[in-house]
Simulated assay, not measured.
Amino acid sequence: MRLWFVVPVLVTLVFGAGASSAQQVNFVFDASVPVRETELPYKLDLGLSAVGPTRVGVDALLDLREIQKIVPERLADNAIIDNCGLQVRLDGLSFLAEGDAIDLDGDVTITIFECSRTGDRDFQRGEEKNALSANMSTAATVELRDNCAYFKLLDLTLAAPELNREQVLEEDTLESVKELMLAAVDLVLNESPLCPELPPKLASLDPTYDKGGPREIGDGGLGVVLEGSVDVSPSTILDILTVLQRQELIPPAP
Rank of each mutant, 00 (worst) to 15 (best):
3 L>H: 05
8 P>G: 07
9 V>K: 15
13 L>Q: 13
13 L>C: 05
17 A>F: 13
18 G>D: 09
19 A>E: 08
20 S>G: 05
20 S>F: 08
21 S>E: 12
30 D>E: 13
30 D>K: 06
31 A>C: 11
32 S>K: 14
33 V>G: 06
34 P>N: 11
35 V>H: 01
37 E>R: 05
39 E>I: 04
40 L>D: 13
41 P>M: 03
45 D>A: 11
46 L>P: 00
46 L>W: 01
48 L>E: 11
48 L>N: 05
55 R>L: 12
56 V>F: 10
57 G>E: 03
65 R>D: 04
67 I>L: 14
68 Q>M: 10
69 K>M: 10
73 E>R: 04
73 E>A: 15
73 E>D: 15
74 R>D: 08
75 L>V: 11
77 D>N: 02
77 D>M: 11
78 N>P: 00
80 I>L: 15
81 I>P: 01
88 V>N: 04
88 V>H: 15
88 V>M: 12
90 L>R: 00
90 L>D: 00
90 L>T: 01
90 L>I: 10
91 D>C: 00
93 L>N: 03
96 L>E: 07
97 A>E: 13
98 E>I: 07
104 L>K: 09
105 D>H: 10
107 D>C: 09
109 T>S: 09
112 I>D: 03
114 E>A: 06
116 S>A: 10
117 R>N: 11
117 R>E: 14
118 T>F: 06
120 D>Q: 15
120 D>W: 15
121 R>D: 04
123 F>E: 11
128 E>L: 02
132 L>N: 01
135 N>P: 04
137 S>H: 14
139 A>K: 14
140 A>W: 02
142 V>Y: 12
144 L>I: 03
145 R>V: 04
145 R>M: 07
148 C>L: 00
148 C>E: 04
148 C>Y: 06
149 A>R: 00
154 L>R: 13
156 L>Q: 02
157 T>H: 11
161 P>K: 10
161 P>M: 10
163 L>V: 03
166 E>F: 08
169 L>A: 12
175 E>L: 09
176 S>L: 05
176 S>F: 04
181 M>R: 05
183 A>V: 00
184 A>V: 09
184 A>R: 06
184 A>W: 05
185 V>R: 01
187 L>E: 12
190 N>G: 07
190 N>K: 14
191 E>H: 11
191 E>G: 03
192 S>Y: 06
194 L>E: 02
197 E>R: 06
197 E>M: 12
199 P>D: 03
201 K>C: 00
201 K>F: 02
201 K>E: 15
202 L>G: 04
203 A>I: 00
203 A>L: 07
208 T>G: 10
209 Y>C: 03
209 Y>D: 02
212 G>N: 08
213 G>E: 05
214 P>K: 12
217 I>H: 08
218 G>M: 04
218 G>S: 07
223 G>N: 07
224 V>S: 09
227 E>Y: 08
228 G>Y: 14
232 V>A: 15
233 S>T: 14
234 P>C: 12
236 T>N: 14
236 T>A: 14
245 Q>M: 14
246 R>H: 10
247 Q>K: 13
254 P>T: 11
254 P>D: 14
